[in-house]
């Protein structure tokens, strides 16, 4: 039997995903130990788990270096990769929003040459161009995006909003919602065809667990 490889986005998503994998009978004990290892094997089920940066999960899965991936919808939207998005895991729920000074609420459409800063320039560009039909100036940032409107780098930002606390502390507000986000189980298209039974078995179990959690 071939190994099935699962790519997990490092951090909280990986921990939550490991809980589900444990509960469906996979051996994830290795991963719970504090270690710097990035690859873990479950010999009994012929599974490998690898820990990668969130934005790299779709890349591993699309190229077939991993058969399955656990990753946020935000990363999937931003990367726009060609893969199967099989299960909404329900956790990691948050929203992608346009945020800025409260004064701009309801006035975004009227600003010509709107300057938008974001880590997610792909999502932001598509939202303004395709859904709103508005031409904007896009500025790519890699962190502390909330700072941009405060120092005049941009008018607004597009970023993930969970509780809105960081925004408030920086005097910003949610102006528009781009989309809802949550963690997804994704599958490589070739793996799905070549290892259908094993993968669908995992997909079905994940779906059942996620449905129960919803209830």
């Amino acid at each position: 039997m071939r190994y099935l490889t699962v790519a997990l986005a490092k951090g909280r998503l990986a921990e939550l995903a490991m809980d589900i994998f444990s509960s469906i009978g996979m051996d994830c004990e290795q991963m719970k130990e504090k270690t710097r290892k990035l690859i873990f094997t479950d010999e009994k089920n012929k599974m490998k788990f690898i820990l990668v940066k969130a934005s790299d999960v779709p890349t591993y899965v699309e190229h077939g270096a991993a058969d399955i991936g656990i990753v946020g919808k935000d990363t999937l939207l931003e990367e726009g990769r060609n893969l199967y998005e099989m299960v909404d895991l329900g956790f990691g729920k948050c929203r992608m929003c346009v945020c800025g000074p409260t004064a701009l609420k309801g006035r975004l459409d009227k600003i010509k040459e709107l300057k938008v800063a974001s880590k997610y320039t792909g999502i932001a560009s598509r939202y303004f161009r395709d859904e709103k039909g508005q031409t904007v100036d896009m500025i790519k940032l890699h962190g502390s995006v909330e700072l941009a409107p405060l120092v005049g780098l941009s008018d607004v930002i597009v970023d993930i909003v969970e509780t809105g606390k960081t925004l408030k502390e920086n005097g910003l507000d949610v102006l528009e919602t781009v989309c809802d986000l949550s963690a997804r189980l994704v599958v490589n298209k070739v793996s799905m065809k070549m290892e259908r039974d094993r993968i669908m078995n995992i997909v079905d179990k994940f779906q059942r667990i996620c449905k129960e959690v919803e209830k």
Binding site: R2, E62, H63, G64, A65, N188, K189, V190, K193, M194
Partner: peptide, 9 residues
């Protein structure tokens, strides 16, 4: 068409 070891059709 797909085969083992190649991540693309």
């Amino acid at each position: 068409g797909y085969t083992h070891g190649v991540g693309f059709p």
